[in-house]
Design a protein around this nucleic acid. Structure first.
Lengths: 125, 125
DNA sequence: CTAAAAGCTGACGTTGACGTCAGGGGCAAA
DNA sequence: TTTGCCCCTGACGTCAACGTCAGCTTTTAG
């Protein structure tokens, strides 16, 4: 699989895939002309990388944690970092839930206000 | 309340408070010499701003949504944006939960592996 | 009164995950 | 063989939420 195909398969840009390689998140074997080739499993790896990025984990930590998550490679220190990251995400989940609830409250209040006869600011003239 | 006091009260930097004003998230009345003064309620507003930033909402949208959230000011269009933002956050919550679960699985697997006798990579020499 | 502490306005620096452009190969179809 | 698409490596651009520094005025503590 070449880089364009992997990009199409995962929905991430070619540039991003090269960036992942630069950050040691993804490896490729090169043909003699220098073109990157990937195994089919690369698509899952890329999706995992995206998931971790989306969780707010920076490249450096993803690089640390990836082998552990994918292949189960582990040391006590790594387990600590993995757990720390898990807890950080858990914290953010709770923050986001609090914020969502706050928005829900605002939405409810707004809906009530609109039912009570403040349907729309009066159009000018 | 002056800017330094508000910063101390909320834990955000003076620079950040000036930035919020620049982004129309926060207003202040100025003394004749130009110094900013805030009412006590500003602390809550700042904390709300931080909460929304933490939820990944950019300045522009915060500026749109803040009056609605704080004072209940509303229009149908605003209600739509508020709801859209709520749904976005809800989506991110579910993504994060999935990621957390994935890390939990990796942690469990790692813990099992370590119990099974791969406690630590052998120290060299 | 004086010196430190706090405020003010620019304005440039930072960080991360890419976007984008320049300039140059390589390879299958027609 | 040419055409056209895909690939390559730099290297600079971007965006957001501030950090930081310069240079100057204001307020406050002693």
């Amino acid at each position: 699989m070449r880089i364009g195909e992997l990009a199409a398969a995962t929905g991430v840009s070619v540039r991003a895939l090269r960036y992942y390689e630069e950050q040691n998140l993804l490896t490729s074997c090169r043909s003699r002309s220098g073109q990157r080739h990937y195994p089919d499993s690369a698509a899952d790896r890329v999706r995992l990388i995206q998931e971790l990025y989306a969780a707010g984990i920076p490249s450096r930590k993803i690089a640390e944690l990836l082998p552990c998550i994918e292949t189960g490679e582990i040391t006590p220190a790594l387990l600590d970092r993995l757990t720390a990251e898990r807890d950080r995400i858990d914290g953010r989940i709770h923050e986001l839930i609090a914020t969502r609830d706050r928005l829900d409250a605002a939405i409810d209040a707004a809906a009530n206000a609109m039912r009570q006869g403040v349907p729309c600011p009066r159009p000018k003239a």
